[in-house]
C-alpha cells in the first residue's frame, strides 16, 4: 500500500514507509514520558500562552484551549483501549463519564486515579474532581502577582474536551486551588473532623486543586428524561 503512491497526490510518506495507519494504536499504551521532559515542554507552553495573555483569566483560558483538543482525542483513544474493540462502549450518562475521567483518563495521564469525585451540594449541574497534588503543578512556583493562577487549567481543558466530545457540553471546566478552609466548605461537614488535625500541622496538600465541571442545562434535562424512561 505504501509504495502505490498516486503520483501528484502530494502525499509524502515517512522514510520508513510507515504511515500512521500502519502503526499499532496500543504501541504507546504503557509507555511513560520522563517528568523532566514534560515539565520542560509545559513551561514552554505556559510562556507561549503568557506572551499574548492580557490577564490571569486570559492565560488560564489559553492553557485550557491547549488542553481541549487533547481531551477529544484521548476520549476515543482510551475508549478503544479500555475494552475489547468488538464490544466498544461509550459513556451515555454523567456518572460513568466522570468515572471515566477520574479513573481511566487520570490513570493514563498521571498513572493514578483522581483523589475524589463529588457533586456540588448547591448546584446540581456542578461536579468536582479533586486532585491533591497535580502533576502539572509540581515544578511551578507562582510569583506574587500571579498568585491566583493555577496551571492545572491545562488539565481542566483536557477534561472539558472529553466532556464536550462525549456529547456532554459544559459551561466550562476550571481549575481552582483550594486552601484548607475552602476545602472544608466545598466538601461540607464530612471533612470537618479531619480538618482539626490539619490546621495544626499546616495544610496537608498545599497544591490541592479542584476541577469544577458545570454541565449545560440541556445535559441535565436529557439525563432526567433518560432516567424517567421517556427516551
Amino acid at each position: 500500500m505504501s509504495s502505490s503512491t498516486p503520483s501528484g497526490s502530494g502525499l509524502r510518506y515517512p522514510s520508513n514507509k510507515k504511515t500512521i495507519y500502519d502503526r499499532n494504536l496500543n504501541r504507546s499504551k504503557n509507555a511513560e514520558l520522563s517528568r523532566a521532559a514534560f515539565a520542560y515542554l509545559f513551561i514552554e507552553m505556559i510562556s507561549y500562552a503568557q506572551r499574548s495573555a492580557k490577564d490571569v483569566g486570559d492565560l488560564e483560558q489559553r492553557l485550557n484551549n491547549q488542553g481541549y483538543p487533547l481531551g477529544i482525542r484521548l476520549l476515543d483513544l482510551l475508549l478503544t483501549r479500555s475494552a475489547n474493540p468488538l464490544s466498544s462502549i461509550r459513556p451515555t450518562r454523567i456518572l460513568p463519564l466522570l468515572q471515566f475521567i477520574a479513573q481511566t483518563l487520570y490513570r493514563h495521564l498521571f498513572g493514578r486515579p483522581a483523589d475524589a469525585l463529588e457533586r456540588s451540594g448547591t448546584d446540581a449541574a456542578q461536579y468536582m474532581i479533586f486532585d491533591n497534588e497535580p502533576l502539572v503543578n509540581s515544578y511551578i512556583s507562582l510569583p506574587r502577582e500571579l498568585s491566583s493562577l493555577n496551571c492545572a487549567a491545562f488539565v481542566a481543558g483536557v477534561i472539558e474536551g472529553v466532556c464536550d466530545g462525549a456529547g456532554f457540553p459544559t459551561e466550562g471546566v476550571s481549575a481552582h486551588s483550594v486552601g484548607d478552609q475552602d476545602e472544608a466548605a466545598a466538601s461540607g461537614g464530612a471533612a470537618a473532623p479531619a480538618e482539626g488535625g490539619k490546621k495544626a500541622a499546616g495544610p496537608l496538600w498545599p497544591g490541592k486543586t479542584v476541577f469544577l465541571i458545570k454541565f449545560k442545562k440541556e445535559v441535565l434535562e436529557r439525563e432526567e428524561i433518560l432516567a424517567r424512561g421517556g427516551g
Binding site: S88, I89, P91, T92, R93, P96, G231
Partner: peptide, 16 residues
Amino acid sequence: EVQWGPSTSSGSAPMY
C-alpha cells in the same frame, strides 16, 4: 434518538 440507549442501561451504550 437511539444513541443514548434505553433508560435501563447502566450508563454506557455500545458504539454499534
